[in-house]
């Protein structure tokens, strides 16, 4: 599989502080990649470097085979920047049409394109509103809309669901899912369920450095594990008792108070794993709230950072 982005020994330094340090990675084309990490990990910096918003201190970036500032990339790469603001006193439809014109649309087509992308984010009713009259969530949707103008080959979304209500989050996820066959997508998000639902690969940054870059199922076990969210955090005795069950290979608990328990099992040793586990939990007087197949990215991140 060819790479959409190639990053080589990339560093960005602000004074003595490294925002990104010596990162080398390749993002595969035509898949959706998640970019995660704690606050200050360098996610936005990496996206900004890929888009040539900021210049690297050292290292190189190649996007779709070109240097990040190459004219050949204009209109082929789009981004939802985290903190960019629209112009004041100009309707969002007009602004989207202006951006579409800059991507090569004729004025009439640009108008239609702005309406199309507003439809994608359910914002057509607000088309004539000024940005200063829109809520944070609506502005976010509008910013997502501008990233969907035209047919970009690479779409980068920095925190696409931050500040959105659950229903809008779901509709944005649906929009992204629809784009997955048409473009390479990179999503940076603290909402790890979004990453799990949408991404095939995950890049984890920590303190400006590359921590991991793997397929999602290499980072978290998707098979032969069950994650249980309990009503109360399990005691050591309860964990030990569960761990002694013959078909269970090991048990891992989350941080105190997380009420999480991950069960790793041997699929050959038992059938109806879920039912057997529920019975075992009942025997130990443990009440469950959620049951998920596989490990969750959330726990991986909590364990490591």
């Amino acid at each position: 599989m060819s790479s959409a982005i190639s990053v080589n020994n990339l560093s960005k330094q602000y004074g003595q502080q490294y925002a990104l340090k010596d990162v080398t990675l390749e993002v595969k084309a035509n898949i959706t990649t998640g970019l995660i990490g704690p606050n200050g990990a360098g996610k936005t910096t990496l996206m900004s470097l890929i888009c040539d918003f900021i210049h690297p201190t050292t290292g190189q970036v190649r996007v779709l085979g070109h240097p990040a500032n190459d004219v050949a990339l204009k209109g082929r790469v789009s981004i939802l920047p985290q903190d960019a603001r629209f112009l004041k006193s100009l309707s969002i439809k007009k602004q989207l049409a202006m951006l579409a014109e800059l991507q090569g649309f004729a004025p009439a087509e640009a108008h239609q394109e702005s309406l199309r992308v507003l439809d994608l984010v359910d914002l057509r009713p607000a088309q004539n509103k000024l940005p200063e009259h829109l809520s944070h969530g609506m502005l976010k949707r509008c910013a997502i809309a501008q990233a969907l103008i035209g047919e970009p080959e690479l779409i980068m979304l920095d925190e696409p669901t931050a500040g959105l209500d659950p229903s809008t989050t779901d509709s944005i996820k649906a929009v992204i899912k629809n784009l997955q066959n048409q473009a390479t997508i990179i999503i940076s998000s603290h909402n790890l369920s979004v990453i799990e639902d949408l991404c095939q690969e995950v890049i984890i940054l920590h303190q400006g450095q590359l921590h991991a870059h793997h397929a999602l199922d290499q980072i978290v076990v998707k098979q032969e594990a069950l994650t249980v969210k309990l009503a109360d955090h399990p005691t050591a005795e309860q964990v030990a008792a569960i761990g002694q069950i013959d078909w269970i290979k090991s048990v891992k608990t989350g941080k105190p108070g997380s009420c999480l328990m991950v069960i790793y099992y041997d699929p050959d040793a038992t059938e109806d794993v879920e039912i057997n586990l529920l019975m075992a939990l009942k025997q130990q007087g443990m009440t469950y709230r959620e049951f998920t197949k596989g490990e969750r990215l959330q726990e991986y991140m909590t364990d490591h950072f």
Binding site: C51, D52, F53, N69, V71, L73, K74, G75, V77, S78, I79, P81, D83, A84, R85, F86, L87, L99, L102, Q103, Q146
Partner: peptide, 14 residues
Amino acid sequence: GSKYLRFLLPRCQR
């Protein structure tokens, strides 16, 4: 200041 240029830069050159 408003980072509006981040909407422009993927579409035009500096």
